[in-house]
Write a protein that binds this DNA or RNA. Structure first.
Length: 350
DNA sequence: TATTAGTCAATAAG
DNA sequence: CTTATTGACTAATA
């Protein structure tokens, strides 16, 4: 399946491992037939409430046509995620730094009908609030590797249910891991714990929320608040570390993506793909959902990206997509989940 | 104009 | 239902 770790070394030469042979350049074949109609930008102009709250936002503009440009490609979607956008190091309560430029340049009309603008009214309000509270700072670094990959090994096991019980690895763990990842971990500054252990709750809760949201169409504020509340008892990760460590041999090809600031980061697409895949599995988040809500892309696209990630150097505008994934990986679980869920709600209530 | 990149959407495959 | 494939189409480049 997706345990392509070993390919790392070789597969880069040829773009895709499989597509490479038959058709040289994956897609892009000349053809004639044509149909496909809908092409419209449907964005409207709302977006934002939360964004603004969180970021002080000043950038998203929701309407390419009107305002001008910026990132037409991201509107709705962006608003949803902007919270974690490019601000990297920031201080907790302070109002976030200006991400005005969000993710670098990038531009491209993105003529897609989806993204119906949503009217987020209250929903947004609530959630955004929570975000503010919880936002952590993942300075940068790429520490979240902790449980980064295990393609399927552990897929079998369900989400960790014992929140506190596992205090096994805790600190040492993290540290070791870090060092282990030397190359990718790079810097020293990494606070690393950004993605602590709460994973478990996050997972559970989020799931719960999802369901709630779905079935009720409502949203469990209670739960949410809980999430943000985040009890201090942080049991840093747990995990059988031992095994992991031994495995981290693959230290991501290329290693050393430059820390994550939101600029010239050089993302190791290979690794990001793997990790995203793993996370998705862990939380049972379907590609379709993630793709649409977090990446603003279609399921098929995500799938392809995940399976055949092209090396960063060969990416052009496609980098944006990976950045989003990367960004998502970097945020604390609850935030990720919230983002997901939120987006879902927003979209739902169109 | 020909290529290349990035996607979507339909649909095949699990 | 979720994921993988792939033909078609657009935009950006060569």
């Amino acid at each position: 399946m997706e345990l392509t770790m070993e390919n790392i070394g070789n597969m880069h030469g040829v773009s895709h491992s499989q597509t490479g042979d038959l058709m040289n350049s994956s897609h892009g074949r000349p053809s004639s037939a044509s149909h496909r109609n809908l092409v419209s930008h449907g964005r409207s102009a709302m977006v934002s409430s939360m964004a603004s709250i969180l970021e002080g936002a000043g950038e998203y503009r929701a309407d390419p046509a009107l305002s001008g440009h910026l990132h037409p490609a991201m509107t709705m979607c962006e608003s949803g995620m902007s919270l974690s956008n490019t601000y990297t190091t920031l201080t907790p309560l302070q109002h976030l730094p200006p991400i005005s430029s969000v993710s670098d340049k990038f531009h491209h009309p993105h003529p897609h009908p989806h993204h119906h603008a949503a009217h987020q009214r209250l929903a947004t309000g609530n959630v955004s609030g929570s975000f503010t509270l919880m936002r952590d700072d993942r300075g940068l670094a790429s520490m979240s590797n902790l449980y980064g990959h295990y393609p399927k090994d552990m897929s079998g096991m369900g989400p960790p249910l014992s929140p506190l019980s596992n205090g096994l690895g805790s600190l040492h763990n993290s540290q070791q891991t870090l060092s282990a990842y030397g190359p990718s971990a790079h810097l020293a500054n990494d606070k690393m714990l950004s993605t602590g252990g709460f994973e478990s709750h996050a997972a559970m809760l989020s799931r719960g929320e999802e369901h709630l949201a779905r079935s009720l169409g409502g949203h469990g504020h209670g739960m949410i608040s809980n999430l943000n509340g985040m009890h201090p008892h942080s049991h840093l990760h747990s995990q059988a570390n031992g095994s992991m460590l031994s495995e981290r041999d693959r230290h991501a090809a290329g290693a050393g993506q430059g820390g994550g600031s939101g600029q010239v980061e050089e993302i190791n697409t290979k690794e990001v793909a793997q990790r995203i895949t793993a996370e998705l599995k862990r939380y049972s988040i379907p590609q379709a959902i993630f793709a649409q809500r977090i990446l603003c892309r279609s399921q098929g696209t995500l799938s392809d990206l995940l399976r055949n990630p092209k090396p960063w150097s060969k990416l052009k505008s496609g980098r944006e997509t990976f950045r989003r994934m990367w960004k998502w990986l970097q945020e604390p679980e609850f935030q990720r989940m919230s983002a997901l869920r939120l987006a879902g709600l927003l979209y739902r209530y169109v």
